[in-house]
């Protein structure tokens, strides 16, 4: 009888220890799909978004006196910017999070969801009425970009600071046609 008890206790301990060992691990590995699906969001260009408030980097944009940065919580920024935007949302494949797009007159903000909080995934400048804090706007030349941001170290005008990537898209003549702030993909 005593041995049966010992056996029972051993089995129970093993089971509890096994689960305990799991529980002490990284809770983030749990399949969030099962509780409504809010794992890493993926933007519509297929790039994975980063990790919310853990995002580092100093690149940011000021629009309508509101400071915007990839990785920052989206709701305060969206509220401050006012409600004159068009809104689009779409669930990711198999409902793994919701991609939201806020289109303003001159910028587009895309967000991703993590732990039920929306974070800014990217900010794109649409026209020449908005410039970066370093003074670059659509229509500038690539020389002006390198003067303001330095040599990018490659053929493209892509600058990375921490987890934030600032990209200047140019046409064949080297003129800036698009500016985008993104959370660096994994």
């Amino acid at each position: 009888m005593k041995k049966i008890k010992i056996l029972g206790i051993t089995v129970l301990c093993a089971a509890v220890m096994s689960l305990g060992a799991c529980s002490s691990g990284d809770e983030d590995t749990a399949p969030e799909v099962l509780s409504g699906g809010e794992t890493k969001a993926v933007s519509d260009d297929g790039q994975a978004a980063g990790g919310g408030s853990e995002v580092t980097g100093s690149y940011h944009l000021v629009y309508r006196d509101v400071e915007l940065a990839p990785g920052a919580e989206a709701d305060p920024a969206i509220t401050s910017l006012g409600d004159d935007y068009s809104y689009f949302e779409s669930p990711s494949c198999a409902y793994q999070g919701m991609d939201k797009v806020y289109t303003y007159d001159s910028i587009i903000i895309r967000t991703y969801t993590m732990d039920e909080v929306d974070y800014i995934n990217s900010i794109e400048i649409k026209d020449d009425t908005v410039e970066t804090p370093e003074g670059i706007y659509i229509g500038c030349t690539s020389d002006q970009v390198t003067e303001a941001y330095g040599d990018s170290g490659s053929d493209t005008l892509i600058y990375v600071d921490g987890d934030i990537q600032l990209s200047f898209i140019t046409d064949g003549s080297g003129n800036v046609t698009g500016i985008s702030y993104d959370v660096v993909s994994e």
């Binding site: 933007s43 519509d44 260009d45 068009s86 689009f88 797009v101 289109t103 587009i108 895309r110 990217s122 794109e124 649409k126 493209t156 892509i158 990537q165 990209s167 898209i169 698009g178 985008s180 993104d182």
Partner: peptide
Amino acid sequence: EFPEPKMLAD
């Protein structure tokens, strides 16, 4: 209506 496609840096 879909939003404008995201700019492609690369």
